[in-house]
Design a binder for these strands. Structure first.
Length: 509
RNA sequence: GGUGCUAUCGUCUAGCGGUCUAGGACGCUGGCCUCUCACGCCGGAAACCAGGGUUCGAGUCCCUGUAGCACUACCA
């Protein structure tokens, strides 16, 4: 059993965009699979036809592909255990439902949803279980003839698990250790619905995990309470010896307030909760995504990996490969992790700085073009180099470099009052002459221009600040930006002189 | 209400009985760098939920309480 090939699955239900917590679950499954040279399966759990959302499946695949979480098997990835979409596995499940019915571990129930609701109103904390099923309409209380007759005439029914009370069920969890639950508190869960001939999650999940030879079930903590039922089902089927090992991951909590992170928190608190932007096909509503917000996929992965897991040392910035090597279920936290968006931004800043200027410049070129400007690649690379240190997202490069393209027409009023003094026009005029007289070679070389200008200031008894600050305001329009000569060399001499002239004119007007 | 899980700086966490006057990271903050804004670098403030045990010794083990979270559907 210990020799079993590692096979894990990520099994979302296509009811909408993939939530960031789901992404983390997928990531942990992937890291675990890859570390053990195992298989990573994508299974689509679409047994609730009423909640199906078109586009959700494609979204899930696109999102995980963007993040570099790869499947080796499953919907759209091939494999020998298909089909991998549960709605396409109806016939398979029926057989196992019958097996449970025959062995007496399940029974047929005719109670309608309306009747159940009434019952719940009638009896506080009503639960369909060993104590109450004797008063309900099912194959345990009806004669065989009546059951057959009802089925024959087309009454809709469900198949329920028959849970015997009074038994301690132990779920061995790789993260939490042994969790013991008494079967008395479990209810007779619906396993199958005749209305659509589809199983519910519980049955489909067990049958598929068994048939697909899944070795480890790594899923969210919300499944822990139903894990005993799952253990029972493996037992009912006689599959206990190949039952997967369970690992229930702690939940991602809201950054503030209480409760788990939900789909609605994102735009309310000003950060995305989805990997990709999502356009709701029904309402047309748009939810923001990490990709569109400008995140690097590596940063999202790194950030998510550390939310509920740590490598045991002080490593913080890790590539996917490093994460694969270091990951371990036993180091997963048991308690829920509050989602810390600020740290996510820090990760992105870190990853952005590690990107080459050339790579960023290629993307930046598109932005520049879209804004209606042009620049050769050499200049774009220089701009990126000058500006990226102050960017958290690649998308911020434009805002920080726009001054290269847009000649200032106004000057920040506060800076103007502070930096432009009475003597400034004369100083700038002198600086203009100095620049004008510089050879093109010297002007274009930041490393040489700096000491030259510095010397010029000294020779003329100017303080560096009295020259540089007004000059910056003249060239940029505000007191921000890269080092002076990373501005002038890219701007070029003509544009530099023009901007100085404009500023002098503005000051004298 | 019931059942289960969890509980260290504001946040993510390290800690698996002595090495803890509790370590790292984000954030916050002081300083340095500096022509600006940033980046970067150096420093600082900041936590063991409470009460009982066990033990020579408890953040670490046990119990109780408290709090948070999850589940409690013919949803997953």
């Amino acid at each position: 059993m210990a020799e079993r090939r590692v096979r894990v699955r990520f099994a979302p239900s296509p009811t909408g965009p993939l939530h960031i917590g789901g992404v983390r679950t997928a990531l942990y499954n992937y890291l675990f699979a890859k570390q053990n040279n195992g298989d990573m399966i994508l299974r689509i759990e679409d047994t609730d036809s009423s909640r199906f959302v078109p586009g959700a499946e494609a979204y899930i695949k696109e999102a995980l592909e963007w993040l570099g979480i790869k499947f080796s098997e499953g919907v759209g990835y091939g494999g020998n255990y298909g089909p991998y979409r549960q709605s396409e596995r109806r016939d398979i499940y029926r057989k196992y439902v019958d097996q449970l019915l025959e062995s007496g571990h399940a029974y047929i129930a005719f109670d309608t949803p309306a009747q159940l609701e009434e019952k719940r109103k009638e009896i506080a904390n009503f639960q369909y279980d060993a104590q109450t099923r004797g008063q309900m309409t099912n194959s345990l209380t009806l004669s065989k003839e009546e059951v057959d007759e009802r089925i024959a005439r087309g009454d809709v029914y469900v198949v329920r698990a028959k849970i015997e009370p009074g038994e301690e069920i132990v779920v061995h969890d790789l993260i939490r250790g042994d969790v013991t639950i008494n079967s008395t508190i479990l209810d007779d869960k619906v396993l199958y619905k005749s209305a659509d001939n589809l199983p519910t999650y519980h049955l489909a999940n067990i049958v598929d995990d068994h048939l697909m030879e899944v070795s480890h079930v790594i899923r969210g903590e919300e499944w822990l309470p139903s894990a005993p039922l799952h253990v029972l089902l493996y037992r009912f089927f006689g599959w206990e010896d190949t039952m997967p090992q369970f690992a229930h991951l702690s939940l991602l909590l809201k950054p503030e307030g209480s409760g788990k992170l939900s789909k609605r928190d994102g735009d309310r608190l000003g950060f995305p909760v989805f990997p990709l932007e999502w356009h709701d096909p029904a309402t047309g509503a748009i939810s923001s995504g990490y990709r569109e917000a400008g995140y690097e996929p590596e940063a999202v992965v790194n950030f998510l990996a550390l939310l509920g897991w740590n490598p045991g040392d002080d490593s913080e910035v890790m590539t996917m490969d490093e994460l694969c090597q270091k990951f371990s279920l036993s180091r997963c936290a048991k308690s829920g992790a509050r989602f810390d968006y600020e740290k996510g931004k820090w990760f992105n800043h870190t990853y952005l700085q590690e990107k080459s200027n050339e790579e960023l410049a290629v993307k930046f070129a598109e932005v520049v073009k879209a804004k209606g400007y042009e620049a050769d690649m050499k200049k774009l690379v220089a701009m990126v180099d000058a500006v990226k240190g102050r960017c958290t997202f690649a998308t911020e490069i434009w805002a920080n470099a726009a001054f290269y393209f847009e000649t200032p027409t106004t000057y920040n009023e506060k800076d103007r009052q502070k930096r432009w003094k009475e003597t400034t026009p004369d100083i700038l005029a002198a600086a203009r002459e100095m620049f004008a007289n510089m050879s093109d070679e010297l002007f274009g070389n930041a490393a040489e221009a700096e000491p030259f200008v510095s010397q010029w200031c000294a020779d003329n008894n100017y303080k560096m600040g009295d020259v540089m600050n007004p000059l910056r305001l003249a060239l940029v329009g505000e007191m921000k930006g890269p080092h002076m000569f990373q501005i002038t060399t890219i701007l070029g001499k003509a544009e530099t002189l023009l901007r100085i002239d404009n500023a002098i004119a503005a000051m004298r007007s």
